[in-house]
C-alpha cells in the first residue's frame, strides 16, 4: 500500500514528465566543501556531515537544487524534476529531520513561456494534492523589493514585517511608501495587476497576464517574498486549505547559478513540494 504522500509523488512525476521535464536522480551525499561556501543561500545553516572511508568530509544533502545546478550543462534550456529526501534542521527543531521533497528546476535561457509553465506546474501540483479542498499560490516579485530596499538600514526588519503582513510595523520602520502599497495587495492577477502597474514596473509578474485558467488559485501577495539572497525575480508560496504552512515554495534564483559559474545571461527557476506536510492535512 502506498501512503498518501507516496501516491502524490507518483502523480506529480506524471505531471512533470508530461511537461517535458526529465527525472533527475542523485546521490544522497555531496562533499561538504560544496555547501560550505553557499550557506548564505540556505535558511537552515546546519549541515549533517560524516567522514567517508577515504577521509573526505561528506554531507547529507540539505538541498537538491544545488546538486542539480552543479550537474546542469551550460546549455540552452534544461528541465529537471526530482523526488528526494533532504536533511535539515527545521525551524524551532533541535535535531535533523529527513524531509521528502519533490520539485522542478528549469535552468538556462528561460523565456516567458517557460516561466508560465513552471507556475502552471506549481498550481497543478497544488490542485492534485488539494483534491476537493481549496488551494492558493501567492506570487510576488523579489527584485522589486530588493530595489526598494537598496541601502536601507532597516532592510531586515522591513522584510520581516513584509512577510508578516505587518503594515503597522512597516510604518514604524519608515518603509518606503511604495513597499507599503505592495504589502497591501492580496488579489488575483485580474485585479492586482492593474493596482501593481500604478505602483511599480514588474515584468516578471506581467507574465501572469492571460493565465486566466489559473486565476482562481493565483494571488499577487508580497508576503511570499523571502530570502533575497536566494531569489531575485518571481517568488511564490503555495497553500492548501487545512495544511497549516506553505506546501510549495519556489522562485527565480539567478544569482546562485551565476555564482556557480553558469553563463551570466542564464536564468533558473524552480520550486519544491514538501510532501511530508500532506499527512498534516489528512485529519
Amino acid at each position: 500500500m502506498l501512503r498518501p504522500e507516496e501516491k502524490a509523488a507518483l502523480s506529480l512525476r506524471e505531471i512533470y514528465e508530461s511537461h517535458g521535464y526529465s527525472f533527475y536522480r542523485m546521490s544522497r551525499f555531496e562533499e561538504y566543501d560544496f555547501y560550505a561556501d553557499k550557506k548564505d543561500f540556505f535558511a537552515s545553516k546546519a549541515i549533517l556531515t560524516f567522514t567517508d572511508i577515504n577521509g573526505k568530509l561528506m554531507a547529507l544533502r540539505p538541498d537538491v537544487t544545488l546538486s542539480i545546478i552543479k550537474h546542469a550543462k551550460n546549455d540552452s534550456l534544461q528541465k529537471f524534476y526530482y523526488d528526494e529526501k533532504v536533511y535539515r534542521v527545521p525551524k524551532n527543531a533541535d535535531s535533523f529531520h529527513e524531509i521528502s521533497q519533490a520539485g522542478v528546476e528549469c535552468i538556462g535561457s528561460l523565456r516567458d513561456e517557460d516561466v508560465r509553465d513552471v507556475i502552471e506546474l506549481a498550481v497543478m501540483s497544488l490542485r492534485l494534492i488539494a483534491g476537493t479542498r481549496r488551494c492558493i499560490l501567492d506570487i510576488a516579485d523579489a527584485g522589486v523589493i530588493t530595489n526598494l530596499l537598496k541601502g536601507n538600514e532597516k532592510r531586515d526588519e522591513i522584510l520581516k514585517c513584509l512577510a508578516e503582513k505587518n503594515i503597522h510595523g512597516l510604518k514604524r520602520f519608515n518603509a518606503p511608501e511604495n513597499l507599503i502599497l505592495l504589502a497591501e495587495i492580496q488579489d488575483s492577477p485580474d485585479k492586482a495587476l492593474n493596482v501593481l502597474e500604478g505602483i511599480t514596473d514588474s515584468h516578471c509578474l506581467g507574465v501572469l497576464e492571460g493565465m486566466n485558467e489559473y486565476y482562481d488559485e493565483l494571488r499577487i501577495d508580497f508576503s511570499a517574498v523571502n530570502n533575497l539572497n536566494y531569489y531575485n525575480g518571481i517568488v511564490f508560496k503555495g497553500f492548501i486549505e487545512g495544511i497549516p504552512e506553505s506546501i510549495i515554495s519556489g522562485g527565480e534564483y539567478d544569482n546562485l547559478i551565476h555564482m556557480m559559474g553558469k553563463d551570466s545571461n542564464s536564468r533558473a527557476l524552480g520550486f519544491a513540494v514538501y510532501l511530508d506536510l500532506i499527512e498534516r492535512g489528512s485529519d
Binding site: R134, I136, Q186, F239, I240, E241, P244, S246
Partner: peptide, 10 residues
C-alpha cells in the same frame, strides 16, 4: 493569524 488559515478564511 495562521498564514494558511488567513488565505481561506479571509
Amino acid at each position: 493569524a495562521n498564514k494558511s488559515a488567513y488565505k481561506f478564511r479571509k
